[in-house]
Write a protein that binds this DNA or RNA. Structure first.
Lengths: 212, 212
DNA sequence: CACGAAGACCTACAGCGTAGGTTTCGCCAG
DNA sequence: CTGGCGAAACCTACGCTGTAGGTCTTCGTG
């Protein structure tokens, strides 16, 4: 299987390694991910990976970069194929949020990586540029526009992190005796994790931005 | 130093272990944390820890539980010592958010743990109970009240995670040629990570909840 | 044709989580 | 007072991890 002579090329590069890392994390989870399993999946010696990636931390950087790249592609195609120009900042914000959400659900086990890392990649700032430009065009005050990206992605990161966390697929029941208000609200949590739920919360956040 | 006879008690229990784990993570970071260093800090054999905690995952659970306990204490004292009754849901929400923020800044390296775990501990639900009760008392529609905790903590978790992440202490500069809108907003990001910044964003989120 | 860089493999090491076994102490029943 | 028993600690050992350092082969270039 790994019958390659010692000096022959294995065709490794950062992109191929990152893609394999994402696939492996998707399948086995972050916990089990490591250099040796990855090398096995690539049919390669573990140390060969270190010729393209500095270390395990850089490996995780590459993986999160790769999935972030996906959302950029999706956001672009969604925007360009829309019938009408999404000039309104709220529609644009919704498109970006949906693309981001789709990525998170496609790679739930990679998503935690993304959230912990600084997002200064070119694709990320391009998306933000178009959003803040639209907001200014629509007359929102600069103070609000400056806060908007962090409010929006703060919410998205936190919410999607909770939704993609392993094992929590529903809100637990509450005792009406000790927690009457929570128990009364239980019906409102029946669509836990649904797209409609996120859209509703997104509306709340966007309303806050619009009204400030 | 570790001169204890084999069967003598080391006075271990879950609380002491959790406290030591939090201290160790605060000092050395999650990456370096492990059973053996923890045992060293406690002056104990690594395997002794397993008599009180099932495994490393449970160890991390205990640590996040411990810091969450802190925020509950703080929120209670803040509320009870306030001059006037914080009956308005917005003030209560701000108190809870500030207590949560203080905890995150006190234990920036433990905070990521907290965010990934389900928060169904009694102290957490008690805080939420008082918040949603106040919101209903103030006449907000149940639909909004049901979404409120997840919107609020989604935002807080995501934002504080970004703020407590290692190494990102400022927003980078943007090229006015390629990203004019972002460059124009740069002055608005000068208070990155400050309390005022979080309060502003919190106002935006609360405004969204109030206006929905 | 020589040679140096690039890219792959191999070896080795310290440290990890933890399963399983052993030792000792303190308590309580008889 | 004593016997036994469970709790709590320690010890050993195993398979795994990330990665430093060295070796080998091939390919592009002078």
């Amino acid at each position: 299987m790994a019958g390659r002579a010692r000096g022959t090329s294995a065709g490794l590069d950062r992109a191929r390694i990152a893609a394999a890392a994402v696939a492996l994390i998707d399948r086995d989870g972050l916990e089990r991910f490591g250099v040796r399993p990855l090398a096995g999946a690539l049919g390669v010696d573990p140390m060969s990976i270190y010729h393209h990636v500095k270390g395990k931390a850089a490996l995780l950087d590459a993986a999160s970069e790769a999935v972030l790249g996906e959302v950029a592609e999706l956001a672009v195609t969604t925007t360009t194929t829309a019938q009408h120009d999404p000039s309104g900042w709220q529609e644009l914000a919704r498109n970006i949020a949906h693309a981001y959400r789709d990525m998170a659900y496609r790679h739930p086990r990679v998503f935690p990586l993304l959230v912990t890392r600084a997002q200064t990649s070119p694709v990320a700032v391009s998306a933000l540029e178009s959003l803040v430009a639209a907001m200014r065009r629509d007359g929102l005050p600069d103070r609000v526009v400056a806060d908007a990206p962090m409010v929006l992605f703060g919410f998205l990161n936190g919410h999607l992190l909770a939704r993609t966390a392993e094992g929590q697929t529903a809100v637990p029941a509450f005792d009406p005796q000790t927690h009457p208000a929570m128990a009364a609200l239980a019906p409102g949590w029946s669509d836990f994790g649904s797209d409609a739920e996120l859209d509703r919360m997104l509306d709340i956040v966007l309303a806050g931005l619009a009204g400030s």
